[in-house]
Design a protein around this nucleic acid. Structure first.
Lengths: 339, 339
DNA sequence: TCGTACCAATGAAACGATTCAAAACTTTTC
DNA sequence: GAAAAGTTTTGAATCGTTTCATTGGTACGA
């Protein structure tokens, strides 16, 4: 297995100087057609592939962008990742993807790795509060954009989705379709996103004098947790039943739906309207197609790359925080009750 | 923003030679404790981070492995990716992840990129038949392991899961729990995996003289497609109903389940047993927890890395194909009918 | 005191690209 | 036909590591 060809081999093979080969690769119009053709043939014959490490060493920076997410398995992030990759590809960069899995030490490993790789910049959805760590990065000249988290604008750019607005949107929709006795199912409100969504919902409910909002406890954010909540409601019976339920994510909502529809005690949406959050793939194919709040994930990924480019380009770093508003997706589970 | 510190700066700062700093980084026991400490302090004070491009240029190869999957959003691949990352980290390598999205040109882009990066090797779940392309890679000394696809063992190593065995396992389980009138729902059998699973199921059915296997058409591999199949069965009524249904993936199975349970005409598992394939997260939290066939994705990812290491290490490349057997996961949807 | 080991530290060379001032050609202009 | 202007091509210097033959020190035994 003979060593892969270098630019020098190509130069010899084509009887030109190394600088010429480099020019063919990087500034094709500086080279005459005749030599260009000769060089290209040599490249082809030797199967030359540019060594990016050498290139990077010389020019001082790579063409890659680091992206660290909390969980690649989460559809929200999967979608953000894909959008970021596409946007990066358009501007000639590649994305190095790291999955921290909510684990601070894995996150730290990736940050180190990406620094050694001299990435152009870093997009990160941080595990905890690592502003110190990121401050260091910033000082060392690695521009950073926070994803799905608000940042101190004097220090970082960030992209996020307005969860308060999302909560408002969901509750407002239930109110607009005539429901007045609302319930919120969130799992732990110690999660910032959940707390914000609840806050938004409260805001909407305040706008209707006779509307009420009850907060139901759930153990976690899973389908099973949702089902337990549903079972409690079923037991409670027709009396205390809310007529509109807003779940802080679709899994919870699907669980509630399973419980209510299986027992056939209550019909969705006639007796209870139900709305989730995230608009996962399963929402549309639920037994009763589930209304939900969709987060503009593609936009999030694309914008993150744009903000990063701004940081890379501008000498005097100015930071921007972009907050997107989520979108209401209406399906059958919140259809207006007949009559 | 001053340039990041180099090994030379560290050497000056600690009053040692550059070679010594390099030794501290790479062969700590070659260096006396006193100087080691001095160097480490200097590294800390200057915030030195090793430039991996320079390192790579010198040693001739990177510490990264390229991994190209068909779809990061697919839980199967997500799980493989995570396992591969962990296994790679253990041996000091990092994984560069590429998502081809079933698109040959995106795939080609990643292959090019990874070649320029001089990855140690490539794990790939190829879009189409790209053996030509991969042959080229092999000639250029980039060892390649195929993932989720069988390979000509004279050319490549590969890891895959035995779909025929999985199909057999599912059907055998239905037979073992007393079902005899089986049905297979697969979507298009032009997909290799689906065809193999059907073949395995047929093999099992042949073992029981009085057992039958009916193949039901489905439009695609989604929940909705499954629901349509379920609706057809419901319409058919108790007469022609199979007593055991095997779906080539969990989405189809969940669709069938929705249809059968909603109408309350038939009960699962009393009237019909139902088993899926893939054991996605949703299987366990279905209305009736769904039995399924689990693919050993973690093992797949880990083994892929191992095979690649073998290829990298061995001078005379020998290739191996490893085929794993999937695993039966029994839940309520195939419980033995009472009595 | 000298010779022999042994250990630590040194620093020039090499990796493969890009860059850029200078050299070598071509073409234009007078 | 020579000078000026423009175009191509050249090749040495450079980026930041690792490597390794060599040098400098120290300890021990004779």
């Amino acid at each position: 297995m003979n060593r892969t060809a270098s630019i020098k081999d190509v130069a010899t093979h084509a009887s030109v100087a190394v600088g010429t080969v480099s020019n063919v690769l990087n500034y094709p119009d500086r080279v005459s057609d005749r030599t260009k053709e000769r060089v290209l043939r040599a490249i082809d014959e030797l199967g030359f592939v540019r060594n990016d490490a050498a290139r990077q060493l010389r020019v001082g920076h790579s063409r890659t962008i680091g992206l660290i997410v909390l969980d690649v398995g989460n559809p929200f992030f999967t979608s953000v990742v894909r959008a970021a990759e596409d946007a990066a590809a358009l501007q000639g960069s590649a994305v190095l993807l790291g999955d921290s899995g909510h684990n601070a030490s894995r996150e730290a490993n990736y940050i180190d790795l990406f620094q050694e790789q001299r990435v152009q910049g870093l997009l990160i959805s941080p595990v905890g509060d690592i502003t110190d760590r990121l401050d260091l990065l910033r000082e060392r000249g690695v521009p950073t954009v926070l994803v799905d988290r608000l940042a101190d604008e004097s220090k970082f750019s960030s992209v996020a989705v307005d969860d308060d607005a999302g909560g408002y949107l969901a509750a407002r929709h239930l109110l607009d379709t005539g429901r007045r006795r609302l319930a919120f199912v969130g799992g732990s409100t110690s999660i910032r996103q959940v707390a914000d969504r609840l806050q938004g919902a409260r805001r909407a409910v305040k706008e209707e004098p006779e509307a009420t909002l009850e907060v139901l406890d759930a153990e976690g954010q899973t389908v099973l947790a949702g089902r337990s909540v549903g079972d409690v409601l079923v037991e409670r019976g027709r009396e205390g039943l809310p007529d509109g339920i807003f779940c802080a994510n679709d899994l919870l909502a699907l669980g509630v739906m399973q419980s209510l529809t299986m027992t056939h005690t209550f019909r969705i949406p006639e007796d209870v309207a139900l709305i989730g959050y995230d608009d996962i793939d399963f929402a549309v194919s639920a037994v009763v197609p589930l209304s939900s709040i969709r987060q503009p994930t593609e936009l999030l990924g694309r914008t993150a790359i744009e903000l990063l480019s701004e940081e890379v380009e501008s000498q005097t770093p100015v930071h921007r925080s972009v907050v997107f508003t989520p979108e209401l997706v209406v399906r059958q589970s919140t259809a207006t009750p007949a009559g």
